[in-house]
Each structure stands twice: as structure tokens, then as C-alpha cells.
Design a binder for these strands. Structure first.
Lengths: 235, 235
DNA sequence: CCGATACTGCCAGAATATGACAGCATGAGC
DNA sequence: GCTCATGCTGTCATATTCTGGCAGTATCGG
């Protein structure tokens, strides 16, 4: 195995563990001596990997991925930049900051003669201007979806009536003017879509709902397709 | 200089030339023997670089960039994926294909345990559903902007009147429902924004307009900010 | 204090990369 | 079909880099 493959594998191994792992252990798993393992860790850290080592404890990797060298065409870079700009201007602050970081990281490694091309890319995404007020934090919803957690919400429906619901959120749709949480609603025992701007209150319950989000998404797509009345059908 | 640095430099050198360059020449510039240069070229090609070599001619690199290994956080990857999805669903077919390629390339290098996370990312961008008919090809406009080329268009304004114009396009704005070309209009001797769906006809003239697009963009932003009447002000 | 672990320096041997050379292949121009 | 410029490959000795082992220091928690 080549050195670079090994480094990639090391990252992967580190990520599999959630708790700190000793260098000794990592060395065994990657089939390398402890001395070399220390060198490998140093190399990865130099490349920007967020690996923390504490004496007496072991190593732990903050969540993230190392992308190996990749070749992108002009159009592909343009697509990347435009997409990141859209995310930066159209989503919640966490994601938006992440998108800005992506652009910064790419810019940092581009050769000097190309930086203007990236910064000056003349494809623009306007900042959302008549943003609907959102009471709740979108990143909380994203986190609940990621972890398949039940949340309780206070929701004002189209008729203006406020209800309390326990929902199993599994997807977040970014429409032009609104964002919609797709979820299973315990109250209705059916799928429901909730506009984020109409959610008044939200409390993640910190426990998982009993199904997989991928599975819910699949059923939901079928259900949406069947009635055809919803404008989310083509999400 | 380390091997990987040299490879990066080689890509950069290759891109500086527009015409084919002989291996001999490249070997001299990167300070390496011809034999090693051939090996380096092979390495880059194996990494996906689009380098073409023809006997008797030399090497030429198709436009593109090699990104070195990069570390992305979970949120950053999520932003990348969401952005690429938006581009894939909301732009012209060339860019859209490029965005799909970006996703495919990233997916290809992600460790197996993470692929589902990428494919199953539950942030969705609906396909544009009531797309306005566009007569002209958006990628032509992008190309004209990239090359700072004059184009002639037939345009139907808001009042329904069709006019012929020579314009200097310098930016393309992706609004929710429409796309807008920002350009200097020779007829009006002023900046004008053209909705792409109202452009009936378009002929790139293949020659450059006499100013830089970055400079036009800057003046345009100032002009837009001043009158304040336009909804493009916050682009 | 101890044990567990991170981390560094050093050096010899292993693995890899490089350069030199010899040779074949291919396309363009004569 | 010849020649030239170049791409491309194989081989092998040499140069460079990587690796493992070992010795030693530092830091944390108990």
C-alpha cells in the first residue's frame, strides 16, 4: 500500500472510533510501526486534519473528511463556486459559514493566476431579500434530521390555527421563498410538510424516532407523487 | 522540492502554455529528467488530469485545476453537496452536468461508510418546475461573459416591444424565477439588465468589448445602489 | 509516585524515486 | 518511404525518502 493510501485509511480508521484511540492501536490497524504512525499523524495534521492527541488518552478526529487530490474542469469549478455562493446567501448561518469556508479553502490552494478567476466569477446569486422571519434555528432542524430525532413544534397552519405536534423530521426542502420540513406527524399519523417560517417553537426531544429517515423519505416521495396536489412533488 | 509539490507545479506550468509544450521543455522547467517527467505525466493522468500528448507535438492540458488534498468538516461537505444540487437542478445543462460530475467525483473518493451520508443527505432542492422558456442557450451567455465578448441580442422588453441591441455582458444573476444578464447596452449607453427568457435571439460577435468585466461589475453595483429602484440592488 | 500515552531524535536498512541510456511508436513534412 | 520531433517503455544503478527500532522526554490522571 502506498503512503498516501495509508494516510487515507488512517483517517478512515480514526473516524470509525468515536472515542480516543491510542497510537499503538492505530499503528496495528494500519499495519505500521508506532514511530511511523506518529509521523503519519503529523503529516495529516500538516494537511489540515483536525486530529487531537492527549497524553494518556489517545487520538481523536473531529468530524470531517479528507478529500484526496481531485481534478476539476473549469465548468466544474464554476459550478462549485456558484453552488457555494447560493448556499452562502440562501441558507441558515451555520451552513452559510461552512460554504464560505469551502470557498476560502479552495481559493487558498488555487495557483495565484487563477484566484481572480474564482473570486471574480461573474455568476451571481442575490442575497435573499424578502426573507420570511424564522423564529426557530434552521441548524437545529438539520441536526434533528441528521440524528433522526423526534421534535415537538408549535405550528401555525395555512388557516392561521396554531397546533402542537410531535413530528419525525426527515428532510428539509429549499424552495425559492420558503423552506419546508418534511416529516411524519404523530398527530395526523401521516406525512406533513411544515414551512419553517410558520414554526413558532421547537424542542428536539433528544431521542430517535423508530424509523430510518431514508425509508421515510422514500415513502414520502411515493405519497407525494400519488396525490399530485402538492407542489413538493418534484422536490 | 517534494514530489507532490513538483506535480502541482507541473500542472501549473502546463496551464500557463496554451499551445502544446514538449516534454523536454517541461522537464527543464520543473528541474527533472525527461524520463521522470514522463513518469510524472503518467501519475497526473492516473489522478484524472486531462493531459493529452501527441507524438511530434507535445503535451497540452485541457482547462482544469488539480485540487490538492483538502480537509472538509461535516458542515462543509453538506454545504458542498447542497450547493451542487442546487446548481444541478437550477442552471443550464452544461453547468448542471458539471455539478453532477462534482458530486460524482467527491462520492468516488469518499470512504464507503460515508457514501450513504452524501447520497442520502436530506437537504433537498426542488427541480425548477415552472421554468420560463428560454430561447437562447445560457452556456453561450456564460461563455461570452467569460471572454468579455460583445453580443447582439433581440430583446422583448417589459412593454412587449422587441428591439435589437449590442450589449457587453459581464454578469449573470440567478434569481428565484428568472435569470438576468447584466450588461452595458450600447444603444442606451448605460447599464441594462436583461431577463434571459425575453432574449429572442443572440449572436456572440466573437470580439472583445473595450472594458474589463470586473470593472463593469463594480460600476454597475454602484449604479444599482444609487437609484435603488431595482430589485437587483442586492445581487 | 506510577502507568499510559503523546511526541522527538537518531540511525541503519527497506522501499521508492530518479536519471541515464537504449529502444520502439507515431504523426507531419518532404 | 525517409527523416525528424516527439511520445512512451524497459532496465538498472544510484539517490532520496520512508520506515522501524530504540532511547529518551513530556504530560495527564490517579
Amino acid at each position: 500500500m502506498s503512503r498516501s493510501e495509508r494516510l487515507l485509511e488512517l483517517i478512515q480508521t480514526l473516524r470509525r472510533y468515536r472515542r480516543p484511540v491510542s497510537g499503538q492501536r492505530l499503528a496495528e490497524e494500519t499495519g505500521v510501526s508506532l514511530r511511523t504512525l506518529y509521523r503519519d499523524i503529523a503529516t495529516l495534521q500538516a494537511q489540515g486534519a483536525d486530529i487531537e492527541g492527549e497524553p494518556g488518552m489517545g487520538y481523536i478526529l473531529k468530524p470531517g473528511f479528507l478529500l484526496p487530490p481531485l481534478m476539476f474542469s473549469e465548468d466544474e469549478i464554476e459550478a462549485l463556486v456558484l453552488g457555494s455562493r447560493w448556499v452562502a446567501n440562501r441558507t441558515d448561518s451555520d451552513l452559510s459559514r461552512a460554504a464560505a469556508n469551502v470557498l476560502a479553502k479552495i481559493a487558498a490552494v488555487l495557483p495565484d493566476d487563477l484566484k481572480p478567476k474564482l473570486e471574480g466569477s461573474n455568476l451571481l446569486v442575490p442575497r435573499a431579500f424578502s426573507e420570511l422571519e424564522e423564529v426557530v434555528d434552521l441548524s437545529l432542524i438539520r441536526k434533528a434530521i441528521r440524528n433522526e430525532h423526534i421534535v415537538e413544534i408549535g405550528y401555525i397552519d395555512a388557516a392561521g390555527v396554531e397546533t402542537e405536534r410531535r413530528i419525525w423530521p426527515f428532510a428539509l426542502g429549499f424552495y425559492d421563498r420558503v423552506r419546508v420540513v418534511a416529516a411524519w406527524c404523530e398527530m395526523r399519523s401521516d406525512f406533513r410538510n411544515f414551512r419553517t417560517d410558520r414554526i413558532q417553537r421547537m424542542e428536539p426531544q433528544g431521542k430517535r424516532y423508530p424509523r430510518r429517515k431514508a425509508e421515510l423519505l422514500k415513502s414520502w416521495r411515493i405519497a407525494e407523487g400519488r396525490d399530485g396536489s402538492s407542489d413538493t412533488a418534484n422536490i
